[in-house]
Simulated assay, not measured.
Amino acid sequence: MTMTTDMTNSTAPVKPGTLFGIPVGELGWFASLLMGTAVGFAAFFAATFVGIISIMAINTIGHHAIDYSLAYKRIGLPIGLLVIAVAYAYLATLWTKRILRKA
C-alpha cells in the first residue's frame, strides 16, 4: 500500500493589517483596546518572569541578596507599560486608517 500526499505550495494572499493571520486592521475600538491590554499584560508577565529568574541566578551565583520585588518594579512594569503604549498606538493607527478609508 502506498501513501500519496499532495504537498502543493499554496501561498494565500496576505491582507494588509494582519498579524500571524489575525486581521488586526479590521478590529473595532473596543477590540483594539482589549487586544492592546492583553499584549501589555502578557509582556508584563513575561518580563517579570525573566526578571525573577535573572535575580534568582544572580543571587545564587554571586551570593547576593537582591530583593525580588525589583523584578516587578524595575523590569516588568516599565516593559509592560512600554508594550501597552506601543500596542495602543499601533492599533489606534490601524483603526483610524480604516475609519478614514470608509469615509
Rank of each mutant, 00 (worst) to 15 (best):
M1S: 14
M1F: 10
T4P: 05
T5C: 12
T8M: 09
N9I: 07
S10F: 11
V14G: 00
V14W: 00
V14T: 10
K15Q: 14
G17N: 07
T18P: 05
L19P: 10
F20T: 03
F20K: 07
G21K: 04
P23S: 07
V24A: 10
G25M: 11
G25A: 05
E26R: 09
L27P: 06
L27D: 07
G28S: 15
F30E: 13
F30Y: 14
A31F: 03
L33P: 00
L34T: 07
M35T: 13
A38S: 10
V39M: 10
F41E: 01
F41V: 06
F41K: 02
A43W: 07
T48S: 09
F49S: 12
F49C: 12
F49Y: 14
F49Q: 08
V50P: 07
I53T: 15
I55F: 12
I55V: 14
I55G: 04
I55P: 04
M56R: 07
G62A: 11
H63E: 14
H63G: 13
A65K: 12
A65V: 08
I66Q: 05
Y68F: 15
S69L: 13
S69C: 04
L70D: 03
A71W: 00
Y72W: 15
Y72N: 10
K73F: 10
K73S: 14
I75M: 11
G76I: 02
I79G: 03
I79A: 15
I79M: 12
G80S: 03
L81S: 04
L81E: 06
L82K: 01
L82F: 14
V83C: 06
I84M: 15
A85R: 01
A85D: 00
V86N: 02
V86K: 01
A87D: 06
A87E: 04
Y88M: 10
Y88L: 15
Y88V: 07
Y88G: 00
L91S: 04
A92W: 04
T93F: 09
T93A: 11
L94S: 00
L94C: 01
W95F: 12
T96R: 12
R98Y: 01
R98M: 05
L100R: 11
R101F: 01
R101Y: 07
R101Q: 08
K102H: 07
K102N: 12
A103Q: 09
